[in-house]
């Protein structure tokens, strides 16, 4: 029983991270109806940004809260800027061309970031320095609740709460929803579609930046290709929840994290990565719209 609860805790904390990244996929899809394959590579760049910051100031030697937040801030900022730039340089000129062009471009940008990363950061994995000292926060009946899990969960919940406030209560957030529901009419009402799209990329990429630091602390091995697997899993989480749906992305992320943890705990850890693809296949066959997704009518 204790072991089970331990797995649940681990699963939720990993699921929260998947959710953060899945939100980026789903938001961009909601607005532009395409998958930004470069999203997970933005996350990789965020991880390296905070890695170099930590190395430069030798943060790993004296972990402290303030450093953690500075790293988080830097990673978020770098990712936001990168997401903004990618949209502006690579995707915007293709806005009026067929969807396939922009999709292929996204794969191109993804490959570009991965291999540019190998060139700049080197191919060897780097050790992400501990920004905080890991400790047992409390234990109940033999279950150790680690401070890191609580921090990951806390920061993720906070980020999602802020996102929710922005999307549902801010003017630009409402404009985002309007654009995703009917962009032609939104433009007629004075909403600048370009601004809304930029905003969406900034928001989604910021979440990837937060996830980057959290993952770095949990699995402190980072390398330029790290986005690939993470991206696939977060993408599956987004599809599982229903692509385009924000609550769906969170739900999908949590299911993903929990089921992976159960596979590792009770089956075999080698099946862990196969699971996400299995889920994707099952979802695409039986419920392509995902758990919380709605069927949208493709307009010509």
């Amino acid at each position: 029983m204790n072991e089970f609860i331990q797995h649940i805790i681990n699963g939720i904390s990993m699921g929260a991270i998947y959710a953060l990244i899945a939100l980026g996929y789903t938001m961009v899809y909601g607005i532009l109806q395409f998958i930004n394959f470069a999203h997970a590579d933005i996350y990789m760049v965020g991880a390296f940004a905070s890695y170099y910051l930590a190395r430069f100031f030798q943060l790993g030697e004296h972990p402290h809260w303030s450093w953690f937040f500075i790293a988080l801030g830097l990673s978020t900022l770098v990712c936001a800027l990168l997401g903004f730039a990618i949209e502006k340089i690579a995707y915007r000129p293709l806005r009026k061309s067929p969807k396939l062009n922009i999709l292929i471009t996204a794969i191109g940008v993804s490959l570009f970031l991965e291999y540019a990363g190998q060139l700049l950061f080197g191919v060897d994995p780097k050790l992400f320095p501990p920004l905080l000292t890991e400790s047992v926060l409390f234990s109940i009946g033999g279950i150790n609740v680690m401070s890191l899990d609580v921090i990951i969960l806390g920061i993720s919940i906070l980020a999602m709460f802020v996102l929710h406030r922005v999307v549902y209560h801010s003017k630009l957030g409402k404009a985002m929803r309007a654009v995703s529901q009917n962009s032609t009419v939104a433009a007629m009402l004075g909403i600048s579609i370009d601004r809304v799209i930029s905003f969406t990329f900034i928001l989604g990429s910021s979440l990837a930046g937060i996830a980057a630091v959290l993952v770095g602390m949990r699995y402190p091995k980072i390398e330029p290709m790290m986005g690939m697997l993470m991206g696939t899993k977060a993408f599956v989480a987004a599809v599982l929840g229903g692509i385009g749906s924000l609550p769906g992305a969170v739900l999908g992320g949590l299911i993903m994290g929990l089921s992976e943890e159960m596979v590792v705990g009770y089956l075999q850890s080698t099946y862990r990565d196969a699971l996400s693809f299995g889920i994707l296949i099952v979802i695409l066959i039986f419920k392509p719209t995902g758990l919380l997704g709605t069927k949208r009518i493709e307009k010509v």
Binding site: K171, K174, A175, R177, A178, Q181, N182, T184, V185, A186, M188, L189, G190, I191
Partner: peptide
């Protein structure tokens, strides 16, 4: 062309997007 997943009030607010 109403925004189907937004409330009536939110739809109207979008009409006033250019004003603050």
């Amino acid at each position: 062309g109403v925004f189907p997943l937004m409330t009536v009030e939110e739809n109207l607010d979008m009409g006033a997007f250019i004003y603050s």
